[in-house]
Design a binder for these strands. Structure first.
Lengths: 254, 254
DNA sequence: ATTAAAATGATAGAATCTAACACACAAAGT
DNA sequence: ACTTTGTGTGTTAGATTCTATCATTTTAAT
């Protein structure tokens, strides 16, 4: 994408809508045909939808319920990899169980593809709850302060709620992992909640791609011993120390 | 909306996209101009976006997987009217206050357009919380069982949470109203929660269009005396009895 | 029955879109 | 150095679509 196309994309994001006549004034040095081609390019790449006389931003349409924030930008990175990991994890979900789904874009991928017949889903993430409400039999939303980066609810209210909830399987995510510090995140309250979930759940499945290995964040909520299964995409980064845990680490083909 | 327009709307929902030439084949008895007008109508009501040569469904983009749920079908009805009501209600929101936003599509319209500088928003609806998390300074999500029709959380967990929350202004919705039964909804837990909210809030603003007047549902959560302002679109349906309440009823132009 | 309002049809002209070809320029290969 | 290839761009002509307007029909209300 060249500078002109990037500018048009930004105009679209800001204004939600742009007319060819406006573009002609902004870019008088290029021909109308070129601007048309730019709009076609943006349409083919999913940034815009061409209308008669211009184009609108795809973000404009997303407003009804969609996610369109910092979170969403990260969520679309490596979406194929995340889907592969989520698909593997979905195979561990059994009918009629109580399933906790953590906040995080990989877990959100899983929420999109689970059927979970008769399952009760519990989640702290508002986007996950919204998605699950379409298909799932029963959905519990943990309450609390919403973190706009993770879309997760945490804090004393969430802690209080989980006291009364039994969890068969917890599908968790983390922002970093190292053998010394374990699984880490950057938010104190979310760390506290995750720690409590890991303790309560009968079975803990971690979804985390290899890019987060050997990165430590501020708060540790679990060590490798605390989880039962870890679904990831690559083992190459792992030091030989991990080899003893190989049986709990599931590697998905990429 | 007439039969033909309804059919086109369904075609759009199914196919995500429709060309005028296709419509001409489906409706050979009417002129092309009429079909163009139908598409314009659907566009003005938020169901479609016209393109060169046809139109696309607004659902096409925002729900990459899965079709629209029951909630969204209702949410798109009368969206202009709901926006008008929501805009009026937004003018009552003051900086830095604690604002409760109820579940409901009209209130969701308000969530889309509030700035609410420095406000803390509390809501039971997961879609509203998700939307607010983009823009608002602070968002609290009430926890509990998610109702897939209203996308609202309610139950003992939500009741427990609001005990510790102070509310300056509560923006409420209801499914029905009559002078005898007051404001009503069909779900026991949601009624219980709404009732508690109305009691706690210093100021209660009701958003409800006139189509719900003189319809009673199972559970009453407030009477006309309990609310401070009611924003609606029409007074014609009201019996003369209501006239004494005229000062608290705000009518928006349609 | 009369009137008003809404929906529809027909037409012309304006605006937009597409396709096709030509040109300029840079990168890569011979 | 020369050619080749590909990409980006400009120009034009013609096809398609859109809008505005007014005439006509249908529907609803009094």
């Amino acid at each position: 994408m060249n500078d002109r196309q990037t500018t048009i994309k930004k105009m679209l994001e800001a204004a939600k809508e742009v007319h060819l006549q406006q573009l002609r004034q902004v870019f008088p040095q290029v021909s109308e045909m070129t601007l048309r081609r730019d709009l076609s390019y943006l349409e083919n790449n999913g940034y815009a939808i061409r209308t008669h006389g211009g184009a609108i931003s795809t973000n404009k349409i997303n407003i009804p319920d969609g996610e369109e924030n910092e979170y969403e930008k990260r969520a679309n990175d490596n979406i194929l990899l995340k889907t592969a990991i989520a698909t593997k994890a979905a195979s561990y979900i059994e009918k009629g169980r109580s399933i906790y789904l953590d906040a995080g874009s990989t877990v959100m991928c899983l929420a999109r593809l689970v059927e979970g017949e008769g399952c009760t889903f519990i989640t702290s993430a508002v986007n996950t709850a919204l998605k699950l409400s379409n298909t799932a039999h029963s959905v519990m939303q943990l309450g609390g302060q919403v973190n706009k980066n993770t879309l997760s609810c945490s804090g004393p209210d969430a802690m209080e709620m989980i006291k009364h909830i039994n969890i068969d399987i917890a599908i968790m995510s983390a922002s970093g992992f190292s053998i010394d510090r374990g699984f880490t995140v950057s938010n104190r309250y979310e760390s506290q909640l995750k720690q409590a979930i890991v303790e309560k759940a009968k079975k803990v499945i971690m979804l985390m791609d290899s890019s987060k290995i050997d990165k430590d964040l501020t708060f540790t909520f679990a060590m490798l011993d605390d989880i039962d299964i870890w679904v990831t995409d690559e083992l190459d980064k792992l030091s030989p120390l991990y080899k003893s845990y190989i049986s709990k680490i599931q590697v998905v083909p990429t």
